[in-house]
Design a protein around this nucleic acid. Structure first.
Lengths: 351, 351
DNA sequence: TTGAAAGCGCTAACAT
DNA sequence: ATGTTAGCGCTTTCAA
């Protein structure tokens, strides 16, 4: 009993001996009011029985809205993104919207291509979580008149809606925590500085240190070539080579922090005994780790929700003059990868 | 410079003083052959310059194919699914297909609703990873003539394309491993038995044990109410209460295995000293855990790839008579949660 | 090689 | 309250 053909409005209309427009109106929540209750009932019954499903393509072509949005993230494998996606979808669902998922692979060109595909698909808007500090996607969306919301990462230009976490505050919390534990020789394993979060976090690090009259010498900072575990290992090896005296490092994100552990092990050092490590993001399952990572927790799910809300708002009324920036607060989660500094016995402070 | 209106074929046609059909043909890879090279070049140039993007809705309405498929998984937060999704998308991308992502929440009703939404969206096919042993989604797709491929989980009916891992073999590997380590009093923390994988894995357990002339008494098996950490903890507590003598358990998946650890800790027992634990799935980051979990590894990414290939094949030629079942091989990954059984000193074997 | 025209399924003026 | 009709943007048959 395989229907090869989908049931259309006309099928229903012919079946009921009424006009397609009547059927259309009877089925629509809004305009069913202008149809006699009896007809509405009969139409809906027939629709159910015959298995009618609205043809989204026809609707989109007619009305101009696909009730569809696009999400672009760097990589699904990064555990940060699943909860963000869920957050987005949880509000989308409430409004009958559906989302396409695309990946930038942390590559601006790829992102650009994906946006073009999404636009061709007719998405009503785009949520983008992969902006470089300068990013052509913003231009593209603007020129095509497609509403855009940035989530988690931002661009240098100011005129775009954004939902992000207060990275600077997060880093400040991490630094303060380490300082309280007595650390002074603190390093920073940064992410690529063309990625906005990397840049912001690094700047927050030096600034916070400066506020405590602690100057950060250049060799205390090493830049990983990606926000990944492997890149973290590599960068941390370099760091340890040039910082035998460091007692703590802050990593630009958890994945890099994991890489730091690996490098530490290769050097035969232990954490937190020899060196404390702080991450960023609070990825899932950290509590289970051999050395549970102290990290800055950010409200992923909520970020997704807010981004979706913002986008939907923008889609409804596109001629809002001002852009919004939603700033969410991070939290420090203290686990076992940070400990009080162990001072070498009675070593003079003055060199 | 905000275009509120998208550039259409007609815009191009008018701009170039030719017919829309010529433009359409010039733009299409297939039919551009019948157009003079010169015109093709001019059309494509204009398209690029004016920012023309095909209207997917119009195309879909005309041609009947949206070049779109739907994926339905239980939950994005379960770390098993991201790699499967990536696998699917990696082959979809090559054929210009895009995927919608929907969730069943392990609830058949939800899955059913989502499938209806996807069908309304006009998807050319569906990949479904959430089948209960009996599942109305299969019927629904069949009745609507929508190609369907099941991934990872299966239904009792046989007439549907499926990509799955050889769960029975995986469990057999786990059992054999424990037997080699000297374990005999082995328990099984099953998942809900209306979920296909749970059922299959449990059956494989008792069968493998039987092959070794080991009878599994009923109290050795406890069923968790979900394939989740919390459910695992609960089930394992029950198990430990009624099996003080057990030396090993196999969990229906890794999440349940994690729950087992928690329960074990609550009882003041240690793993693997007092009790060995084996999981299933090899979720990410297990190597980092305090007690790295021995588990059955399955090729998630590859499963996704194969599922997508199968679906695309089915979409191309829907009247294939026979269904395919792709069976992938699992691998046992031995880590630290399993160890040789410690026999109580010189206790007589005979009771 | 190109043009003309129909029509995919739907909604929304505009009639009645 | 319901019917008529046009048209969204595209592909494709048929004609030239």
């Amino acid at each position: 009993m395989v229907h090869r053909k989908r049931v259309t409005l006309r099928d229903l209309a012919e079946h009921l001996n009424i006009n397609t427009s009547t059927v259309s109106r009877a089925l629509s929540e809004k305009s069913s009011e202008m149809i006699s209750p009896d007809v509405v009932k009969r139409v809906r019954k027939a629709a159910r029985e015959m298995g009618y499903k609205q043809n989204a393509a026809a609707y989109a072509l007619k009305v101009g809205s696909t009730k569809t949005i696009g999400m672009i993230i760097p990589d699904l494998m990064n555990p940060v993104f699943p909860p963000i996606i869920r957050g987005i979808q949880s509000v989308l669902d409430q409004y009958g919207y559906t989302a396409f998922l695309a990946y930038s692979q942390n590559n601006e060109g790829t992102a650009h291509t994906e946006v073009e595909r999404l636009i061709s698909r007719g998405v009503d808007g785009i949520i983008y979580a992969a902006a470089f500090r300068k990013d052509s996607v913003v231009e593209l969306c603007k020129s095509q008149g497609v509403p855009l919301v940035l989530v988690n990462r931002v661009v240098d230009q100011g005129d775009v809606d954004t939902v992000k976490v207060d990275d600077s505050l997060g880093i400040k919390m991490a630094v303060d925590h380490l300082l309280e534990l007595g650390h002074r020789k603190i390093g920073f394993i940064a992410g690529p500085k063309d990625i906005s979060v990397s840049y912001i976090r690094l700047r927050a690090f030096t600034r916070t240190m400066a506020e405590h009259d602690l100057e950060v010498e250049p060799h205390r900072i090493v830049e990983a070539h990606a926000l990944s575990e492997a890149a973290g290992t590599q960068a941390m090896s370099v760091f340890l080579g040039q910082n035998p005296d460091a007692t703590a490092v802050i990593a630009s994100n958890d994945l890099i922090a994991l890489g730091c552990f690996t490098a530490l092990k290769q050097f035969g050092y232990s954490c937190p005994k020899r060196l404390s490590i702080v991450g960023f993001n609070n990825m899932p399952y950290l509590d289970w780790f051999a050395t549970p990572l102290t990290t800055v927790s950010i409200p992923h799910f909520q970020m997704g929700e807010r981004a979706a809300e913002l986008l939907l708002k923008r889609i409804k009324s596109e001629n809002l003059d001002y852009n919004e920036e939603v700033l969410l607060k991070p939290k420090l989660v203290i686990r076992d990868s940070t400990a009080p500094v162990i001072r070498p016995k009675q070593k003079s402070d003055a060199t």
